[in-house]
Design a protein around this nucleic acid. Structure first.
Length: 257
DNA sequence: ATGCCTGCTTGCAGCAGA
């Protein structure tokens, strides 16, 4: 079972790149973030023609998340919002069960500028995620939380830590909240597979960042202890970031037995 | 300190992204 996450940065303008990547990488399950499209603008026909069923939660202009699963897999929606704040209208969380695995698709708030209300929203969202993640562990099922966490976990996860010292993605509060979720009983799978390697999943559009490899690792796979022994491999489809009309994120994937 | 680039909007310049 190959599971992937990809922040597409606009599913409508990214559709050719998305379909090309799906055909090449052929994940069984793909979590997408930043659809930047309202609910009725999701390109379901094209996704189906590529062999996938889809659940999605759109929103005009910003945010938006989707979970794709190959047609032969039964996919059941569990949640389309993160519990804990009925006033939160941002489409940032989608949860499904596929083949007995609970999949949480996450588009965690960016939180910039720091400090400020957007950063407070980020921390509050992470606190809600912490509570929900702990409840998911009580299900005694395989759990995978994946997506754009907008958190740089460690200094080795960014090209130049000094450049992000005032960035919401690298604040101690953000990193500690991420670690607190791991401490519930989750493993940062890519880091676990490659303890010493420089791994980036995002390169910004400015300053020729991709060609200079000025990147960050902010898209993550968190797996619980029932899932971890089955993890066989993982990686970043870095070359996709070099395609024409590409997202500023690259797809990330793991293979689980 | 700011803009760099890109996608989106009942838009045509301004916002958000990270």
């Amino acid at each position: 079972m190959k599971i992937a996450t990809y922040n597409v940065n606009g599913i409508r303008s990214r559709l050719p790149v998305l379909l090309k990547w799906l055909a090449e990488s052929a994940p069984d399950i793909a979590c997408l973030q930043e659809l930047k499209a309202p609910q009725d603008a999701f390109p379901l026909d094209e996704i189906k023609a590529s062999g996938y069923e889809a659940l999605w939660k759109g929103q005009k202009s910003w945010n938006g998340v989707a979970i794709l699963a190959k047609k032969h897999l039964a996919i059941t929606e569990r949640k389309n919002e993160l519990p804990g704040d009925t006033d939160d209208e941002q489409s940032r969380y989608l949860e499904a069960e596929v083949s007995g695995i609970i999949i949480g698709c996450i588009y965690l708030p960016n939180g910039n500028p720091f400090p400020g209300p957007k950063f407070e929203y980020k921390l509050s969202w992470m606190s809600r995620l912490h509570k929900h993640a702990s409840e998911l562990l009580e299900q005694d099922k395989p759990v995978i939380l994946t997506g754009d966490f907008n958190v740089i976990p460690e200094e080795m996860d960014v090209y130049n830590p000094e450049r992000v010292k005032d960035d919401a993605l690298f604040q101690p509060e953000s990193r500690n909240a991420f670690q607190d979720i791991l401490n519930l009983g989750f493993t940062d799978t890519l880091r676990n597979l490659f303890p010493e390697e420089k791994i980036y999943t995002y390169w910004d559009y400015f300053r020729n960042a991709y060609n200079r490899n000025s990147g960050m690792r902010i898209d993550h796979f968190l797996v619980n202890s029932l899932t971890l022994p089955g993890v066989k491999s993982g990686g970043v489809d870095k070359h996709v970031r070099g395609w024409e009309k590409t997202s500023d994120h690259a797809p990330v994937w793991i293979e689980v037995e």
